[in-house]
Write a protein that binds this DNA or RNA. Sequence first.
DNA 1: GCATAATACATCATATCACGAGGTATCGGC
DNA 2: GCCGATACCTCGTGATATGATGTATTATGC
Lengths: 105, 105
Amino acid sequence: MDIQLKRGLLDVCVLAAIKDRDSYGYQMIKDMKPYIEMSESTLYTILKRLESANMLTVRTVEHNGRLRKYYHITKEGLARIDEFKNEWREVMLIYQFVSKEDKPQ
Amino acid sequence: MDIQLKRGLLDVCVLAAIKDRDSYGYQMIKDMKPYIEMSESTLYTILKRLESANMLTVRTVEHNGRLRKYYHITKEGLARIDEFKNEWREVMLIYQFVSKEDKPQ
DNA sequence: GCATAATACATCATATCACGAGGTATCGGC
DNA sequence: GCCGATACCTCGTGATATGATGTATTATGC
């Protein structure tokens, strides 16, 4: 998939992955895989960014001797998803502009 | 509209703006305005990029003493639009992932 | 007649961001 | 004891949208 097209979807996908239940990085990559693939470096960059923007909070949990960071969506994060849904109307308009079949002159 | 979301649409919008008839920069901005707004600096950057990628060709025309550069889409450019349409299925899948309403646990 | 807006192009510096390459450490299976 | 899976992280690079700025002509308003 085209990288540029992906860009607008990545952040919001990560938020969607923790919308209904808290999750951690490694798990999120597996959950999102059927829809969108992203490398670990990409995900952790995004998680940092979303944390700075107060769209999620983090808590560290020890699991079988290994460290896990669970991410929890905030109300700002949920608002971001709603904003995305609203913007989607504009996106669909653009899609129609691009894909419409006109008679060439 | 979110810049990141815009990124994947800009190139293909420019191609769509010249799909059915040749056009020039200033006109294209006006034609695309109802769907997507972009500054002149953005458009001319994109036109250069699309030219390098052989997705369009340019011819300069004198119009009322002023210079105009008319852009013409190539078959590679048309193929790019088709590719975009194919990718749209993936995009819609992602959209559904993001916007689905699940019962929170 | 003159100022301002519109037409039409262009360049440059800046900021944002996805990603590969590489790193650290633990656990389970064989 | 080795390897793959689990789980995190950092850094450098390349791509790119945009504001600021510049040049030049034509049309319009007063």
